[in-house]
Design a protein around this nucleic acid. Structure first.
Lengths: 194, 194
DNA sequence: AAATTATGTTAACTTAGTTTAACATTTTAA
DNA sequence: TTAAAATGTTAAACTAAGTTAACATAATTT
């Protein structure tokens, strides 16, 4: 059970005692998934909030016309979950699929309250994590409202080079909110420009 | 000092004792602002996270071309703040301006830690508030990625009729990420359709 | 090594949304 | 109560982005 990356990550926010760490470790689940498998599916209740040890996921919404809209990618040291579904235990809006073989630490819904009670520091920790996620979401929203597709691509490429290298281009296009053909055009424009 | 609406709101999430309530009340600030004034400005550090007692604010980003992009409106019983600036005490990305004379309960940055220490329940409370805000932000993002401007307008109109009635139409357009002329066209289309 | 399957490119055409500008209406201030 | 300022409408010309479809290349599988 590779849990070191999670403990290291938590330690950046709060300091756990040995007992607290042991309790935490006893409550979470280490698991591997294969490329293509699903962690969560639109309509189902999302039972886990997960920390990625290795690998990669995409979180996407499938609209009525069957079009995929990618909300986010998660790689090492990031979280993946359908927050709305997980927190309210309601049917998920999103699908989460593995883009690579992936190792996760899974936090089951029914141990979360227990963790908060036994380790109040984790309440603080998760508050801070969610604050960060909210801020990132707001900033992405403003980029989508104020920037052209070309500038959004340039921003993505500069900000997440590790992600761009690992995933097919048509998924980047979906994340940016444009078609794969249009992203292809943008990239060829950028090549001839410089 | 009208603080009842805030206490009622908090009580939906956690139960405070009389001492805790008194401590909280002693730490926050009640204040009125006039229409047109600013609570926060792009570039300044946001010193307060605020709960709206009455009135209305808009939170917007001003881009390099001087165009306003409205991120959110806040009315009674909602929060307003530049989260990123407030939490990290870094220069704000957003402006927050009052659209009406507005009454607020202000949480100063330098009392927040104190509040968490003295009233651990508030850590839980704010975690839950931010979870809700994050979920709403994610859902708005997916609407912006997957719906046409017309459908986004219909959704807004149906979801926030109280807001649409209080603010000028060109601000609704900005919130939806379209021009006021295009929103005007959409509305006249909707009138002739039904 | 050949054959699929998945991914990426290009170009012609269409559509959603923007720009500009002129005018109409409503609200606010003098 | 009239003028000025703020807000809303319309339409023509334009642009960013989507659609379709044919083809090219890379990655897997047999």
């Amino acid at each position: 059970m590779k849990i070191e990356p999670l403990l290291k990550y938590i330690n950046k926010y709060v300091s756990l005692t040995q007992e607290e760490t042991d309790f935490l470790v006893s409550k979470v689940i280490y698991r591997k998934y294969l490329k293509g498998q699903y962690l969560a599916q639109q309509g189902d209740v999302c039972k886990y909030s997960c920390f990625v040890i290795s690998g990669c996921t995409k979180t996407f919404y499938m609209d009525e016309e069957g079009q995929e809209h990618i909300m986010m990618f998660s790689i090492e040291d990031w979280w993946t979950s359908d927050m709305s579904s997980f927190i309210n235990q309601t049917p998920a809006d999103f699908n989460i699929q593995f883009l690579e073989n992936t190792e996760l630490i899974m936090f089951p819904y029914d141990v979360i309250e227990d963790l908060y009670l036994q380790i109040p520091k984790l309440e603080r920790f998760f508050r801070q994590i969610i604050e960060k996620a909210f801020i990132a979401s707001q900033k992405r929203l403003v980029r989508n409202l104020s920037m052209t597709a070309k500038d959004r691509y340039i921003y993505f490429r500069d900000q997440y080079p590790q992600i761009e290298q690992r995933i097919p281009q048509y998924m980047v296009a979906s994340y940016l909110g444009i078609t794969k053909e249009f992203l292809s055009k943008i990239k060829s424009q950028l090549l001839t420009e410089d």
